[in-house]
Design a protein around this nucleic acid. Structure first.
Lengths: 227, 227
DNA sequence: TCTGGATGCCGATCTTGACCTCCACCAGCG
DNA sequence: CGCTGGTGGAGGTCAAGATCGGCATCCAGA
């Protein structure tokens, strides 16, 4: 999906010559793989070059430095996420569906086999101002998109809507990331549905059970959810 | 609060001799300040030593290496957060209050003037397995504590309870961090209350306003919340 | 087909910066 | 007065980002 084989090119000596744009695209793919697998600090430019099957100078002929390369990938992913969320919000006017699709968008974003979501949601370079700015912008833009819908469709003020959207994004982000690390233990649709339920009806939507009413045969609410 | 003056010790030459535990405590304080201010990678051991007013060898006589020092601080903060959440959950049997206090615990954790929450919630060393493990453990433990309460007090199964707790923790964490970066624009209690409301009643708790019903004089729900 | 030029690529190297130890110093005690 | 043990400054080592001259490859045109 990315650009080429996952194994480093064992090209003995020479590499096929590529036009600039194709080479650049390939380098981005290789860099994405290594950055995702090891994080920013742990990856060496040597590794990226090796992964791409080229030598280091080629890398520096396409990108001024390590940080620029990383930022290019970061922008790519941040834009992807924001687009997905915007599409989800614009795809319907029913707010429950909007929330469901937005949360699903986070799960889909995280579910990409390349793992590129890590660049946006788990970057290890937030100390760098340029990175911090992009990560926070990505977060804020997504939240603002949701906040605009909330403010438009409910009676809450813009400040309150922003707070709510922050909470929702946090819920979706964290839920999606956690679901991913479980590695398929929980069905994706089920995880999404639970998060949507929580976001939509809150904890109070779940039946209270008295502490002395510990009958395990009582009907389970979670399974009779309808949508 | 941490250990001593924020300015590096301008001691010309000699430093007062301290017993081991006191020295270690002071070194931890200095390290915390520098790690928090600059992140793991950007901080040099030289800086920590200078900040503490000692020389590098004494640092290495107390901690085998940079990573060990960082892990000590990380454990410290992770334990602090987990304790706060556990206290919040154990302080009452009313679930709404439990959630409120738990979310408030995250806000209080983040609100510490030392900024030490960054070590747990914004570490730039997740590529290191030891760090990753601790960060994830901290998150999981907090979620499990909440999940246990949910599973005990509602009819949902343990898997569903875990999912819900993950979402709640994400909501609290993200909300708290975001509230902090706003830097006092929003009142803390108000931010907490909104997050609690969202967690408890969900978005559906807010009145639906028809798109053609754009009367700004409609009563604002968010202010008439009762608990 | 042959040639000249330009483009793309590589091996080897430089430099920086940060983690981690070696020789002089000094304070307290018998 | 001499010894013990902790402290300080200076240095070793190494990994990693960034770079320079040389070589191979492709293409336009006669």
């Amino acid at each position: 999906m990315t650009v080429g084989p996952s194994a480093p090119q064992p090209r003995t000596g020479k590499t096929a010559r590529l036009p600039r744009t194709a080479r650049r695209f390939q380098l981005l793919g290789a860099a994405r793989e290594v950055f995702v697998a090891q994080g920013y600090h742990a990856t060496a430019m040597d590794e990226i070059a090796e992964r791409a099957g080229v030598s280091k100078p080629v890398l520096y002929q396409h990108f001024p430095g390590k940080l620029d390369l990383y930022l290019a990938l970061l922008d790519e992913q941040a834009y992807s996420l924001l687009s997905s969320v915007r599409r989800a919000l614009a795809s319907t006017t029913d707010n429950h569906t909007r929330i469901a699709r937005s949360i699903a968008a986070y799960f889909d974003f995280v579910d990409d086999p390349s793992g590129a979501y890590q660049l946006v949601l788990e970057s290890d370079l937030r100390s760098e101002p340029a990175v911090r700015k992009r990560v926070e912008n990505s977060f804020t833009e997504c939240a603002n998109a949701i906040a605009a819908v909330i403010a438009a469709d409910t009676g809450v003020g813009p400040g309150e809507a922003e707070l709510l959207s922050i909470g929702l994004v946090g819920l979706a982000e964290t839920g999606a990331r956690w679901w991913l690390v479980t590695g398929g233990t929980v069905e994706k649709e089920r995880a999404v549905a639970t998060m949507v339920e929580l976001a939509w009806r809150g904890l109070a939507g779940y039946p209270r059970r008295n502490v002395d009413d510990a009958d395990p045969a009582s009907p389970d609410h979670a399974d009779e959810r309808e949508d």
